[in-house]
Simulated scan of single mutants.
Amino acid sequence: MAEEIRVKELKTVFSPEQIAVRVRELAVEIDALYGQEPLVAVCVLKGGFIFFSDLVRTLHNHNMELDFVRLSSYGKNSSSSRHVIFNKDVEVDIRGKHVLIVEDVVDSGYSMRFLLDQFAARQARSLRLAALVDKHERRQADVKVDFAGFRLNKGFIVGYGLDYAEHYRMLPGVCEIIPE
Rank of each mutant, 00 (worst) to 15 (best):
L55G: 04
G47W: 00
D104A: 10
L59Y: 05
G155Q: 09
D117T: 12
C175I: 03
D31I: 00
C175D: 12
E137N: 08
L45P: 03
A131T: 03
E103V: 07
G48Y: 10
Y160M: 05
L66V: 09
V21H: 13
D67Y: 02
A121C: 12
V90L: 11
E180L: 13
L55T: 02
R70G: 04
I178T: 09
E25M: 11
V99C: 08
A165N: 11
M170D: 15
H83I: 14
S15D: 08
K97D: 06
V92K: 05
A121G: 13
M1Q: 11
F14Y: 15
G159P: 00
A120H: 15
L33M: 11
K8R: 15
D31F: 01
M1Y: 10
H83K: 15
D146M: 10
I94V: 14
Y168P: 07
S108M: 04
S78V: 07
Q36S: 14
K88G: 04
L171G: 00
V7Q: 07
R151M: 10
V99W: 01
E3Q: 13
D93A: 13
K8V: 10
M64C: 08
F68H: 08
R139E: 05
L39N: 01
A131R: 01
R125Y: 09
S73K: 05
M1H: 12
D107F: 00
R139T: 02
Q123K: 14
T12K: 10
A41V: 09
I5L: 15
E17V: 07
E103A: 04
Y160H: 08
E3V: 14
K154F: 12
L33K: 12
F150C: 03
A141C: 06
K88S: 09
D31S: 02
H60D: 14
E65R: 12
E29G: 12
L45A: 08
A27F: 02
S79F: 14
L66S: 03
F49W: 12
G159F: 00
A131I: 04
A121Y: 10
V106A: 00
S78D: 13
Y160N: 01
L66P: 01
A131F: 06
L171V: 06
L152G: 00
M170E: 15
D54N: 10
S73L: 06
S111K: 07
H98S: 03
I101Y: 00
V105F: 04
I178A: 06
Y164N: 13
P38D: 11
F14S: 01
E137H: 11
V13W: 05
H62E: 15
N153A: 15
I5T: 11
L39V: 00
G75A: 11
L115F: 08
S78A: 14
E25D: 13
A41K: 02
P172H: 07
E17T: 07
F147T: 00
K46C: 03
V102L: 09
D107V: 07
F86H: 14
S15M: 06
H60P: 09
E180A: 12
E37I: 09
A27C: 10
V21P: 06
A130I: 04
D117S: 13
L162C: 07
E29Y: 10
E65Q: 14
P38G: 08
K46A: 09
S72Q: 12
V143C: 03
L129F: 02
E9I: 09
